[in-house]
Design a protein around this nucleic acid. Sequence first.
DNA 1: CCTCTGTTTTGATATCTGTCAAGATAGAAG
DNA 2: CTTCTATCTTGACAGATATCAAAACAGAGG
Lengths: 125, 125
Amino acid sequence: MSKQKVAPTLELTLADAACCTPLTEVALGAEKARDLAPAFKALGDPVRLQLLSQIATAESGEACVCDLTAGFELTGPTISHHLKVLREAGLIDCERRGTWVYYWIVPARMSALAHVLGSALAGAR
Amino acid sequence: MSKQKVAPTLELTLADAACCTPLTEVALGAEKARDLAPAFKALGDPVRLQLLSQIATAESGEACVCDLTAGFELTGPTISHHLKVLREAGLIDCERRGTWVYYWIVPARMSALAHVLGSALAGAR
DNA sequence: CCTCTGTTTTGATATCTGTCAAGATAGAAG
DNA sequence: CTTCTATCTTGACAGATATCAAAACAGAGG
């Protein structure tokens, strides 16, 4: 029917790719899509979006689980589950320090997502 | 087909919010999270990520379903389903012109998502 | 040792999701 | 009108997901 111009997957790297990057006018390859989709999926829940935002906007750059749990009317295990999903998506990481566990953003992963949106936005006009 | 008109009282102004925007050091509210999470969720599938990317990078700014279907080993109904999910998430819109149906990106919606990632990235420093 | 608190894991359940086959719909072209 | 092609909708089903209660785990402080 119509031509399907296949696009070679482009190797784009670096953490700052989100902002002011030259546009790649090439569609996402299957492999990259399989890598990034789970991360977007992890953001596809209102609770997790807020959790991520609260972690990102914490003054020290990291947030304790007890602080995060306080903002929701959900049980501890449920919050813990959502944090695990975000962590397995590579969006956050954590460390136990004494009694408390602290979470922080993984900027490289975030910027990879931002870059995809930026490219789509750039391509859209 | 096109159901959404104008975004009601959204503060962020237009399509450039993704790039070099002053950071909002405030965590996402529940209402905004409930609005945006479904859009991220729609991106949380490899097939839909590629569909969106192919639409965005189409040279005319829009893509015909027949072109999109050709790139996957999936049935027509399945592709149609994914396009519907993207459309209901506000990320794309479509129009029938004669025999074919064309899809294009909704930049305002895309930039709203990009803005969230950008803020989180800025907050994480 | 024990207990207390903060966090995660396990188990159960109701709901949601991706996929395809089959049927429906909308134009185009006889 | 009738047929053909492109696209969407419906129905069905295996697999995934969000949530909570209960149990387990990890340190802190007796």
